[in-house]
Nucleic acid binder design. Structure first.
Length: 651
DNA sequence: GTTAGGG
DNA sequence: CCCTAAC
């Protein structure tokens, strides 16, 4: 089917702060929208056109920001009116500790022709308030019919704000197809050009949906280098109160997982005045579960699932994906309140600060109220952004590499380059670009049953990284990263000066089909802030962290002493430093331990727990069960010490 | 904020 | 692990 989707181009790139969009229903699509249709155009040309637009903008933005950041303030260009000058500080890229850093330095070169093509595609005169919608058909080597319907909408009101939304969807007619959807949306609103504040919020979420209803999350993140801050300035009256409120507030991620924190742990710890990681985490967790987050689902998602087909697909998938992680379900689930989800990075401090600092009071306010016009001197930084919407149909026979590339192309067209796409399927990074999706297990026919066991797909071949790649087959603009950890395609701006922002190339990583969150993200270097984004998807499930025998022992020990009704104490006693273990986790673990101890060893899974420990679990459980019942309303139970335990065991 | 329990 | 009710 020829899907018609709007391509709500959202990332204005470097124009200014981004703010959440109002519900589509109230968004006006009005007058300054122009529709252009040309089914004869080549998809790439179309993309190129879009990219060209972006490039133009980015170029101007980059140049002005780099060399004449402040002098450009009064640029004659219309766009410049909105563009905000940046502080040097703000310009500093975030000190992310990700492996992508190396990649970010990678600046692929693009032929001048390419650029020209891009630039040529869109008259500069149309930069403003133009909405284009084009439908194109293009035949790929696979004789696929690719339909693209792109609508680029950019509306802006002079000196007030900019709103851009983009949605791209393409689909082919091939029966077997993988329908991926990457959603993203961002809006930018910048206030004037005075040395004031502005705020910026961006959303970053994406989902991939295959034709059989596979629903996965994809994250598009900006890499360290691209973590450029966009201080906003405006002439609004200073609001001391708000200012104070927002001060020192930074929301870079909604990921309450360790993964997110690790990277900045050191930094936060080194700041005495800042909450300790554990505290942050705690707060973060609260944030994560906060109603705020839940109340800010993306509008886009709604659209996605509102379509009858989409819903069907989704539900069908849901039905057959019990075995899968539920993390992907969360997004949908949370989207009840329909609104827009977005992450906000508020940074009043140095850009070097970790983005993990949670906004305390501010968060809620900024997120909820979009108190844009009220908070002076607040600098927000964009840690991530959302790609409006992207539908991509890829035949099963397509290679993983081609999938990545396709996404890169599409997204790149939107963002203007610097995109890296990785594929994570069932928690594993699919590095072998040569493999077909089918081989990788990303099949339409994927049997849910296979989800529970190692799929027949061939093991990821290590040589893929260093081995010969299909790079030669890649389009000019797409270059392969030589980063060992990533074989994502990187598409960067054509020329240095074309960098999106001064030296800050926006590198984004999209994690495609990722039914389950990457398992170990420990070396957060492996997966940059992206995951955060993933988690950014409102309340994303935390990554699973099986208890080690050591932890189990500590837990047993504590429970023996404290009983089973004082999880908070247990936490403090034995897991004080285990930030990722909440007392609820401990309680849950105990629950499973008791269960595990009650079943036959054959039925147990995971890392085996020494019988000795399980015995202790049963003993303690039994003891405290009785004890509690007895102590009901009485004096606190006596700790189950070794002696008493032995007594019980002996009895 | 904690607990307890179902999912 | 998540989510909630209940305290």
């Amino acid at each position: 089917m020829v899907s018609k989707k709007r391509l709500g181009y959202g990332f204005s790139g470097y124009r200014g702060p981004v703010i959440p969009r109002a519900p589509r229903s109230i968004r006006k699509r009005g007058p300054h929208k122009k529709l252009v249709e040309d089914s004869q155009l080549c998809a790439f040309e179309l993309l190129a056109a879009v990219a060209g637009k972006l490039l133009l903008e980015s170029e101007s933005s980059a140049s002005s920001n780099v060399a004449e950041a402040k002098s450009q303030l009064g640029s004659s260009r219309d766009r410049n009116e909105k563009r905000q000058p940046r502080d040097d500080k703000a310009l500093k890229s975030e000190s992310f500790d990700h492996g992508s850093c190396a990649e970010s330095a990678f600046v692929p070169k693009v032929s001048v022709e390419d650029r020209n093509l891009f630039n040529k595609g869109i008259p500069q005169a149309e930069n403003d308030q133009v909405v284009e919608q084009t439908a194109v058909h293009v035949s790929s080597d696979f004789q696929q019919k690719l339909d693209c319907d792109i609508k680029l909408g950019i509306s802006e009101e002079k000196s007030l704000d900019e709103n851009a939304t983009c949605k791209i969807e393409s689909s082919n007619f091939i029966g077997e197809s993988l329908n991926s959807k990457v959603e993203s949306g961002s809006e930018v609103q910048s206030q004037d050009d005075k040395n004031r504040i502005g705020h910026l919020s961006m959303a970053n979420t994406s989902t991939v949906n295959d034709s059989i209803g596979e629903y996965v999350n994809t994250n598009v993140l900006s890499n360290p280098e691209s973590s450029v801050k966009f201080p906003l300035y405006r002439d609004s009256k200073p609001d001391a109160l708000l200012k104070k409120c927002y001060n020192n507030v930074k929301v870079g991620t909604r990921d309450d997982d360790e993964n997110s924190f690790r990277c900045n742990k050191s930094s936060t710890k080194s700041r005495p005045l800042r909450p300790q990681p554990s505290i942050l985490r705690h707060r973060m967790r609260k944030m994560m579960t906060s109603k705020y987050w839940r109340a800010t689902p993306k509008l886009m998602d709604y659209e996605l699932y509102s379509t009858s087909e989409g819903m069907k697909t989704f539900y069908r998938y849901r039905k057959s994906m019990h075995a899968r992680e539920r993390c992907e379900q969360a997004p949908l689930k949370k989207r009840k309140l329909s609104d827009r989800s977005f992450s906000v990075a508020i940074d009043q401090e140095q850009s070097s600060d970790s983005i993990f600092n949670l906004p305390e009071k501010a968060s809620g306010a900024s997120i909820k109220g979009h108190a844009k016009a009220k908070d002076p001197n607040v600098t927000f930084s964009i840690k991530s952004f959302k790609v409006p919407e992207l539908y991509i149909d890829v035949p099963e026979t397509a290679t993983v590499g081609s999938l990545k590339r396709t996404v890169v192309d599409a997204v790149a067209a939107i963002l203007g380059g610097g995109i890296r796409v990785g594929v994570i399927y069932q928690g594993k990074k699919v590095r072998d670009d040569q493999r077909t999706l089918q081989q990788a297990g990303i099949s339409q026919c994927a049997n849910p049953d296979n989800l529970d066991r190692p799929s027949p797909r061939s093991p990821i071949s290590p040589m893929t990284h260093s081995g010969v790649s299909n790079a030669s087959l890649d389009p000019p603009l797409v270059t392969k990263s030589d980063n060992v950890d990533n074989n994502e395609y990187i598409l960067s701006p054509t020329t240095p000066d074309n960098k999106l922002t001064d030296g800050a190339v926006i590198n984004s990583k999209a994690l495609i089909p990722a039914p389950a969150p990457p398992m170990n993200v420990e070396p957060l270097a492996a997966i940059p802030a992206n995951l955060k984004h993933k988690r950014s998807e409102m309340s994303q499930r935390r990554t699973r962290r099986p208890f080690s025998v050591t932890e189990v022992e500590a837990l047993v020990e504590a429970v023996e002493t404290l009983g089973t009704g004082r999880w908070r104490d247990v936490k403090m006693r034995a897991f004080e430093d285990a930030d990722h273990r909440t007392y609820v986790d401990l309680k849950d673990k105990w629950k499973t331990l008791v269960h595990t101890a009650s079943i036959s060893p054959q039925q147990r899974r995971g890392e085996p727990v020494p019988h000795e420990l399980l015995d202790r679990v049963l003993s303690a459980h039994s003891y405290w069960s009785q004890h509690q019942s007895r102590q009901h309303g009485k004096h606190p139970a006596d700790p189950l010490n070794v002696d008493s335990r032995e007594g019980i065991l002996g009895a």
